[in-house]
Design a binder for these strands. Structure first.
Lengths: 205, 205
DNA sequence: TTTTGTAATTAAACACTGTTCATTTATATT
DNA sequence: AATATAAATGAACAGTGTTTAATTACAAAA
């Protein structure tokens, strides 16, 4: 009959429209300051319509959050052809930091805001799958490094967490504008400098 | 005459009452979900009254934020009697992490939330004095370490930032509940383990 | 072509929010 | 007791997320 298919397609299109509008508003004004009515205005539908496509505001937020991980992961996979695991680890760090600074609001959404995990808690999933995949990627790269003799005397899980924390710490301080405490002439480059200092340490380990 | 003084005192008392009520609600329900009316209800005053004591909700938030730094700094100064600078540095790290995990909502307020800096931006101060004092403390401790020969080949500002980022990264991932990606049996201890792994690295540097 | 059934959309309503402000209340001084 | 002043109030404004009864659009059946 084909009609059902077209309807399905149209429904999917509107869902996508909502997501696109929400994303542009979230990234422009912030999640908190974007109202359902703002989104509705932008797509020229009534506020109520949005609730036929998403349970609540958090569900919109969470859908975008998932998209962010796909983006990040897509950028990560290109390092697979680097043969040296330590080089791969450092490349991961650079990609992570670069992604965070290029897409601060999306990063915020993914790793800083509390909403997505509230959503995870309120639905049924006890797991944060998107984040887990990213962490697994780090852990396996680190394991390869250790198999080749790097980081002796260290333990895989703790070191994985430590490395993640370090890059997350730098970018999240930057994104949430706590870097104003470093010397004025260093503020623009402090994340880059910090990352290089970190790599320097990793090399000597 | 004494009357003005008593009035002044009473005014100060109510201000303090507002702050106490706001703090307990902020820490219990979160800043976003605490309304001025909630605070007013708790102290049994009308919502309008609060605006005689604070310009807006952010000003209440900012006042508490300052209190948090005083708390943290008070805990920090006790390390001054440790003669060895590297021991002092590590003690700072432990105190910082301990404070963050003991007072997650206050830490959130101080280092994660964006509001206080919005406040700083909107008033006149271009500086985040509370944070700056804490960072200076770290930097001077680190300098002493370097003067005694530690961390050779590293640069003071970048390394200060890196160290701060590392501890901030660990606690903020923990507070914002991103630690669920680490192995299930390690989740309870991962921040402690990560910190020890970090100290281990610092020792070898 | 008209009727029917269903899915999509809407406007209105509810209970909130931060904030402002004219009015009322309380109280110290004259 | 009257006055001046500072403090507290409650109503109002314009917004919020969300729910729901009513309406509209439209493909399928008669």
């Amino acid at each position: 009959m084909g009609v059902a298919e077209r309807k399905e397609r149209e429904k999917e299109e509107l869902r996508e429209q909502i997501l696109t509008a929400a994303k542009s508003l979230f990234l422009k004004k912030g999640v908190e300051k974007t109202s359902i009515r703002n989104i509705a205005d932008l797509i020229e539908y009534s506020p109520g319509s949005i609730y036929h496509y998403f349970k609540d505001k958090d569900e919109i937020f969470y859908a975008l959050h998932q998209g962010g991980f796909q983006q990040l992961m897509a950028k990560m996979v290109v390092i697979n052809d680097l043969p040296h695991p330590l080089e791969r680890l450092k490349a991961m760090g650079r990609i992570y930091v670069h992604f965070a600074l290029e897409n601060p609001d999306m990063y915020d959404l993914m790793f800083i805001k509390e909403a997505p995990l509230d959503h995870v808690a309120r639905t049924k999933a006890l797991e944060w799958n998107e984040g887990e995949a990213t962490f697994k990627f780090l852990r396996s790269t680190l394991r390869e490094c250790m198999e080749q003799g790097y980081f002796q005397g260290q333990e895989e899980e703790a070191l994985s967490f430590l490395i993640w924390s370090t890059v997350h710490g730098m970018v999240s301080l930057s994104i949430r504008r706590r870097c104003e405490v470093v010397l004025a002439d260093r503020q623009d480059t402090i994340v880059k400098d910090g990352l290089n200092a970190f790599f320097n340490i990793l090399d000597r380990l």
